[in-house]
């Protein structure tokens, strides 16, 4: 229940404050969001399999975000930022699809 409240509060804050993304963060925010989504979907899968653990979720969430941003940052320094961010999005997208497939199999048995 509390996480759902957190979700709603986050959306409300974003709509209410309407902040602009700082220029330095602009390349990293979309990647960080995708990484966080991956962690959230993985958590959803773990919930369905009744082996959800808050500690694992928190660690995977933060590490996902940090590593994704770090990869893109390093890519930017090397001059291959756009390619590396594409790579990160592709990998995370595959993981999201795999986790969604597991959830689907569990829910629909198909």
């Amino acid at each position: 229940m509390i996480p759902v409240i957190g979700l709603v509060v986050g959306v409300g804050l974003g709509l209410w404050l309407q902040p602009t993304v700082p220029l330095g963060l602009q390349p990293y925010l979309p990647i960080a969001i995708v990484a966080a989504l991956d962690a959230v979907i993985g958590a959803g899968r773990a919930l369905g399999e009744r082996r959800f653990d808050e500690r694992v979720f928190v660690v995977s969430f933060i590490s996902n975000v940090v590593i994704a941003a770090l990869i893109v940052f390093v890519g930017d320094q090397l001059g291959v930022g756009s390619q590396l961010s594409t790579a990160v999005v592709v990998v995370l997208g595959i993981r999201i699809f795999a986790n969604m497939a597991a959830i689907r199999r569990r829910v629909f048995h198909a």
């Binding site: 996480p3 808050e54 979720f57």
Partner: peptide, 9 residues
């Protein structure tokens, strides 16, 4: 977890 999700949202 709620704080993290809120941050994501």
């Amino acid at each position: 977890v709620a704080v993290l999700l809120g941050g994501l949202a």
